[in-house]
Computed example of a mutant assay.
Amino acid sequence: MNSEGIVDTGLNILRLDLGRFDRRFGIGPACWPFFDLLWIHSGSVQIRIGGANLTLQAPDGVLIAPDVAFEGRSQGADASICHFDWTAPDLACPHGFLRPGLVAGANLQTMIRLLHRHAAQNASAEIRKRLLRAILDGFSPPAETDPPSRVDRAWQEATEKLAEIRSLQDVAALAGLSESSFRAEHRTQHGAPAGRHLQRLKLRHAARLLTTTGLTLSDVAAQVGFAHAESLSAAFSRHYGQSPGRYRRAHRHLA
């Protein structure tokens, strides 16, 4: 396993790993607070993501969005994973996952193998970052011609300064809107409550800090804009089904 740290607010590799799935070692169940690129190099797996059932036959893979539950099984498959933060497409996975383009499989497999080789050889962070971005292009939906809306620009800015975001009113101010107008525009564009999205952003970042730093719970709460550690603990337990301390112990290998 290789843990990577890229100094880039948009892209940060957390973990690269190679392994094998079979009857003894299945996939999940899991629900990560970061993106998970699962790639099948040989063999096949059956995986359930949200309400979708997928069969991945090498060379094939799936890009799973944060906070999306998944699990799978295989009779035998060689696979790799890449866990990473990626702020740019935070609202771009309406189904919880993305698939590669129709003709991208072989090219992506070559690039993914090269990414793991670069990591093993301690290639520069910039080289690995550029390669991962090229890989992600193979999963991205067609680029939009319209610029980001003021709502999405506000979310991008809020993601970079969560410690200063105490309420949805703070996010609305970044868009130059009242809270009620921001709520309405967000729901129109994304079909979900803005308050829920803010809570998910805060808890997802809290989960990252718990698994990748030694910060106390009070410090984590301050970093993600919660007034008290107790408030964070209650919200975190409701969202992830376990306390922050238990979550940290269970995911300590990511630190």
Rank of each mutant, 00 (worst) to 15 (best):
A229C: 06
G50Q: 00
S80Q: 01
L14Q: 14
S231G: 13
K129F: 08
A79D: 00
A255P: 05
S80Y: 12
H228S: 02
A235E: 06
T216A: 08
R128K: 15
Q242F: 05
P147D: 06
L37R: 10
W32I: 03
Y240N: 02
A172R: 06
V171H: 01
F35N: 05
H251L: 10
L102F: 11
H190Q: 02
R208P: 01
R24W: 06
A88Y: 10
A30Y: 15
W155F: 13
R128Y: 11
Q57F: 01
R246Q: 12
A69G: 04
K161W: 03
L18H: 14
H83C: 10
A69S: 08
Q57H: 08
F25D: 07
F70R: 02
F84R: 05
A154R: 05
T212I: 09
H251G: 02
C93Y: 15
S149C: 09
D90R: 13
P193D: 07
D146K: 12
G225H: 08
V68E: 11
I49F: 10
T87N: 11
S80E: 07
W39M: 04
I47F: 02
N122K: 15
V103K: 09
D36P: 02
E185T: 05
G214W: 01
R153I: 06
F97Y: 15
F139I: 04
G241C: 08
P148A: 06
Q169D: 15
G61V: 01
F25W: 04
A173D: 14
I127K: 09
D8S: 14
D78Y: 03
G76Y: 00
L232D: 09
D85L: 11
R117I: 04
P141N: 11
D78A: 09
A158T: 03
S243F: 01
A65V: 02
V171K: 02
N12K: 12
A172H: 03
T211N: 11
H186L: 01
A30C: 10
S180R: 13
L114R: 14
I49E: 08
L102V: 13
G19L: 02
I47C: 01
H83D: 08
N2Y: 12
E144Q: 13
A65N: 10
S3M: 04
P142M: 06
H41I: 03
L14V: 14
P141Y: 05
A163T: 07
H251R: 15
V171N: 03
R48V: 12
G245C: 04
R238T: 13
Q169W: 11
V220C: 03
L63H: 02
G5Y: 10
H205C: 03
A158Q: 05
G195M: 08
L217H: 08
L210W: 00
S233Y: 12
A172Y: 01
L209K: 00
G96Y: 10
L54I: 04
G96K: 07
P193E: 02
N53S: 14
S44N: 09
I47A: 00
A106S: 11
R117P: 00
L215V: 01
R200Q: 13
S74C: 02
I6Y: 07
C82K: 09
P141F: 05
I135Y: 12
D85I: 08
A134C: 12
I47M: 07
S237D: 03
L217G: 07
S167K: 13
H190Y: 15
C82E: 06
